[in-house]
Design a protein around this nucleic acid. Structure first.
Length: 108
DNA sequence: TTAGTGACCATAA
DNA sequence: ATTATGGCCACTA
């Protein structure tokens, strides 16, 4: 069965532990695609169409910024979900990003 | 097939 | 600090 890059991204994102975050580039690298970070974000744009719920709020850019928050049903949702899981967000940016960072290459 | 696109990343000024 | 630019890869029309 052919699994599209999208599906691989979705699965990996679903594996992100609660209270942890990761970056698009890390996901791309974890999938072995290396520089296809843009594709990861592209996949997330279809995340709301996926069969399973995708915790896209746990995926941010390399700076820890919630770049994709406007793609959620409600822009505030992303930040709220993160704070709800114990992640501190200020001005659309995750505090202690490195501390909450979850690297699929290391943890997986 | 070609062209266009993007929730990125890194570098340069 | 911000703005601009190039590269990068997979998908869609």
């Amino acid at each position: 069965m052919e699994q599209s890059f999208y599906d691989q991204v979705f699965e990996l994102v679903k594996l992100i532990p609660k209270g942890r975050v990761t970056s698009y580039g890390a996901i791309a690298k974890g999938l072995g695609s290396g520089g296809s970070a843009r594709m990861v974000g592209y996949a997330m744009s279809n995340a709301h169409l996926a069969a399973s719920p995708i915790p896209a709020h746990r995926v941010v850019n390399s700076s820890g910024l919630l770049t994709g928050k406007f793609h959620f049903s409600e822009p505030n949702l992303m930040q709220e979900l993160l704070e709800k899981e114990g992640v501190v967000v200020k001005d659309d940016k995750i505090q202690n990003f490195k501390k909450h960072f979850w690297d699929p290459l290391v943890e997986l």
